[in-house]
Design a binder for these strands. Structure first.
Length: 878
RNA sequence: GGGCGGUUGGCGCAGUGGGAGCGCGCUACCUUGACACGGUAGAGGUCACUGGUUCAAUCCCAGUACCGCCCACCA
């Protein structure tokens, strides 16, 4: 019985959570031992940025993973949840550069080596805040295996796979149009570019003179300085006469050809396009098809380099300047009109991205993406929910080559060296670069190392015990928003790196479980600018980690978004409190966990009922968790715990627990009797309920479970498997509950005053099958024996209650009549519906027999109601 | 432009070919010895619209409207 009696009447998460987590960690529960003889289960965490802190999206992600992992651990699997962080190249470099800027320094003032050193210092001092916050949430990750994408081992994995790809011809260097951030001065991949609908201007400009004149439309007039052609559609009759001729490019005096290319949409604008191969990806392709020269007119900062009056102007200054100059020459035709179009911005600093021709490294993704698609197509990797596969294929089947070089200093440096005669050599992790050769200055895209995460963290390229035990990982949990960014890339690299394995064991994970985004209470996306964000740490402070987790898990329907607000969290907090008090009650009354359940003969009907329900709930919750139906599992547990266990079973348990025989020896008395059986059933149900709740609500369940059982931790208790189904007890209890509810409703409908007890004669109850429950019914419905005063009576007929009332006394006759008329109308409607249905169903053989039977019963019940209510109304009329 | 999803009580969401559910909110009553972060009883919905399949449609099919998301080299 421990100190449970001292439990306060309200649960205070703050006092429980910290110490509990420490205890778990110290006990080594989180650490996976691959040498143990048990099936394995593994998850790698999507590594959060080293610069990041825990936001509500992580909280959802982590709650789901922790729930999965805790259940598996209880099921006896050797379970690994591997934590770590991403070095987040550009984000981290920006943070440190901003810090330097405060000291009036730039990274160039420090030089590369010192700058990188400085980033490491920053990481040691202020990086990785999120790790501490994960502890607050209760994440049962294996801290002994924590990894960082810039770790020694992970760097080796990066170099190994780079070299392999390079040697296989899957990495190449080429001059291409890439997304360029003129502020960060680096290339960006497509996914590092955010597109927004921006207001621009569509300018129509006349190129050439006289018969050769042709009008083009553009939103980027300044790039015309680099035009090397005008393109029209080959079948466009308006321009066939011009194809192959040259027109003069205004402001430059250069003559450029008019070419035919089917990329041009004749219906758009004038049907003629200026072609600037060095500053537009489409134009670059057109240029390649037609062997056009590429003329770069902007530098890496977006400043005009073309000789002439515009030289030195920023791109955004150059645009109006060019348009002004054209206007002076009378080259602007029609109005310059406002034009809404999609513009790319650097996802890190929001600077408008500039398509830029430059020499970069690329991964040839076609064969890798094919394999990544096939693994899902042939079922080696299952996506959950399966509808997401369409999105996945859409991405994987049409993937551009991946630009992996970044002009940054923080990251994995590209392991390619340049020799004296323009020789190029890729150097593997265990090789020495030739003396005097110069290494490529660029680093790799952060996603390159993230893509290796499921195996680099387990020791690859070495054949380690961890890799053997935990790869492929069991499940990957993540939001559907990064299905493409990250999941597709892990698939490509995992399958490639493990291509020597059995194909079934090559993918990085067997299942991808996708969840939605967290939204506010009205379903809007959370954003700082809207001010509708929820800070999970704030919730943990105010409501507790368990309530925070429960709120998120309860909303986590597969693949769909989760709407949350303080009210939901408060509801979960209340649930925690409910559990707390249920356990407090149980412990105070001497509940204990029996070695085995008392024999069926000594169990009461409520005992059998709650055990039957518990075992059904355990099966249901297990099934739901197996299929990532977290919301359903939470609902089931919530209602079982609150509605059935607390509202009915605990109330009923008060009878034996407080009866003379039960209390004779005080709480926890060792004597036999109904009270002791109840104590054991109570202990048994609470024990199992806490185990079932533990994966979602680890802290409070452990606190209560250890108090109840005196054992070490529910974390290492076995996951429940029960078979106590008892349909007879369930049916009998259903009758009791229905009867009690009827009587309560009667009390409420009559508006009986607080202290006023209903004195009801349960006519016929002794003779009915419910006679055994008379005391329970009296207790729950708060009936007292007839005393001759105000004396309505309830009679019980075949599980249906009819309440006979004495119309004298406190009853408001008019109100009563209105209520009855209403009920009568409802009963008539019901009868009408049921008989209509019988008419439909009754004469065909197509309807299942039980449907017909049920409908008959419905009709009979409704007709009884009608008769009863009609009688009552007639009575009232007198 | 292409693809996907949604439309169920005030709000957020479940759900099923055969009597509409949950949470929060709302109403009334209740300091009943676990809990007012509580208890009891209620009110509230023609399940977006139209047509089809069926004995029977909120559920299956087609179309319409509106909303949302993702992808795309929208000059």
């Amino acid at each position: 019985m421990t100190g449970a009696i001292d439990l306060p009447s309200q649960y205070t998460p703050g006092e429980v959570e910290g110490p509990r987590y420490e205890l778990w960690e110290k006990a080594g529960y989180f650490t996976a031992d691959p040498s143990r003889d048990a099936p394995t289960f593994s998850i790698v965490i999507p590594p959060p940025n080293v610069t990041g802190s825990l936001h509500i999206g992580h909280a959802l992600d982590h709650t789901i993973m922790d729930t999965i992992v805790r259940r598996r651990r209880m099921q006896g699997y050797t379970t690994l949840w591997l934590p770590g962080m991403d070095h987040a190249g550009i984000a981290t470099q920006n943070v440190v550069e901003r810090e330097l800027a405060k000291e009036g320094l730039s990274r160039h003032d420090l030089g590369r080596e010192a700058f990188v050193e400085r980033v490491w210092e920053w990481k040691a001092a202020s990086g990785g805040q999120i790790l501490g916050q994960m502890r607050r949430l209760g994440d049962s990750v294996d801290w002994s295996r924590e990894r960082f994408t810039m770790d020694e081992g992970l760097s080796r994995a990066v170099q190994t796979i780079f070299k392999r790809l390079f040697d296989d011809g899957l990495i190449y260097r080429a001059e291409r149009i890439i997304n360029w951030c003129p502020r960060c001065l680096t290339a960006l991949s497509d996914i590092e570019v955010d597109h927004t609908e921006d207001e621009g201007e569509l300018v129509s400009i006349r190129y050439g003179e006289g018969d050769d004149a042709i009008v083009v439309a553009t939103t980027r007039a300044e790039t015309m300085l680099g035009d090397t052609a005008v393109a029209v559609h080959p079948d466009d009759p308006r321009y066939t006469h011009l194809i192959g001729r040259e027109v003069e490019l205004p402001l430059t005096g250069r003559r450029i050809p008019v070419i035919a290319d089917s990329h041009v949409d004749p219906a758009f604008g004038t049907g003629a396009v200026k072609v600037t191969p060095a500053h537009d990806p489409n134009d670059f392709d057109i240029g390649r098809r037609h062997n056009l020269p590429s003329l770069t007119v902007l530098d890496e900062r977006g400043v005009v380099t073309a000789h002439g009056p515009f030289e030195g102007l920023d791109r955004f200054e150059a645009r109006p300047a060019v348009v002004g100059a054209l206007r002076e020459q009378g080259r602007i035709v029609a109005e310059v009109r406002p034009y809404l179009h999609s513009v790319g911005h650097c996802s890190r600093c929001h600077t408008t991205v500039e398509p830029r021709l430059s020499l970069q490294w690329f991964v040839r993704v076609a064969p890798l993406a094919k394999a990544a698609g096939d693994a899902v197509r042939d079922g080696r990797v299952r996506l959950h929910p399966p509808e997401m596969a369409a999105r996945y294929f859409g991405w994987v089947d049409d993937m551009h080559d991946w630009c992996i070089s970044r002009q940054l200093w923080w990251g994995h440096r590209i392991p390619v060296f340049y020799g004296p005669n323009g020789e190029v050599r890729c150097v593997g992790p265990d090789e020495e670069p030739p003396a005097g050769w110069r290494q490529d200055p660029d680093v790799l895209d952060t996603w390159f190392s993230s893509a290796l995460w499921p195996f680099s963290t387990l020791g690859w390229p070495d054949d380690t015990p961890d890799l053997r035990a935990f790869y492929p990982t069991s499940v990957l949990v993540t939001g559907y928003d990064i299905l493409f960014f990250w999941v597709a890339r892990m698939m490509m690299f995992g399958l490639y790196a493990m291509s020597d394995r059995d194909p079934d064991d090559a993918p990085p994970f067997r299942v991808v479980a996708l969840h939605g985004l967290v939204r506010d209470a009205t379903g809007k996306k959370m954003s700082k600018s809207r001010g509708n964000t929820v800070d999970p740490l704030d919730w943990i402070e105010r409501f507790g980690a368990d309530a925070t987790r429960f709120t998120l898990a309860r909303g986590a329907n597969p693949g769909s978004d989760v709407a949350v607000s303080d009210e939901w969290a408060a509801g979960s907090r209340n649930f925690c409190n409910k559990l707390w008090n249920a356990a407090r009650f149980a412990l105070f009354n001497g509940a204990r966990v029996p070695r085995e359940l008392p024999g069926a003969a000594s169990l009461s009907v409520p005992d059998r009922w709650i055990l039957s329900r518990l075992s059904a709930v355990a099966a249901e919750v297990d099934e739901d968790l197996e299929h990532f139906e977290f919301a359903k599992a939470c609902e089931t547990l919530y209602h079982f715990a609150w509605d059935e266990f607390c509202d009915w079973y605990l109330e009923l348990a008060k009878i034996p627990l407080t009866s003379a025989e039960g209390t004779a020896e005080g709480p926890g008395g060792a004597a036999g009797g109904a009270g002791d059986v109840t104590r054991e059933v109570l202990g048994f149900v609470l024990d199992h309920l806490l185990r079932l709740l533990h994966p979602v609500m680890p802290f409070i369940t452990d606190e209560l479970w250890t108090a109840l059982t005196g054992q070490e931790s529910v974390m290492v208790a076995p996951w429940p498997r029960l078979s106590c189904a008892d349909p007879a007890a369930e049916a009998e209890m259903a009758s009791v509950m229905r009867l009690v509810t009827e009587v309560r409703r009667f009390r409420s409908d009559q508006g009986l005053r607080p202290g006023q007890r209903v004195a009801a004669r349960l006519a016929g109850i002794e003779a009915s099958p419910l006679s055994a429950h008379a005391e329970r019914i009296r207790f729950l419905a708060r009936l007292t024996p007839p005393d001759g005063g105000f004396n309505p009576s309830a009679s019980l007929e075949a599980e249906r209650v009819t309440v006979e009332l004495d119309t004298a006394g406190v009853i408001d006759i008019d109100a009563e009549r209105r209520r009855m008329e209403k009920d009568l109308a409802a009963a008539r409607r019901e009868a009408e519906q049921a008989s209509a249905k019988l008419a439909n169903v009754g004469f065909t053989a197509k309807a299942p027999a039980e449907v017909v039977e049920k409908t008959r019963q419905r009709l009979a019940a409704a007709e009884q109601d009608i008769a009863r209510l009609s009688d009552r109304l007639a009575l009232l009329a007198r």
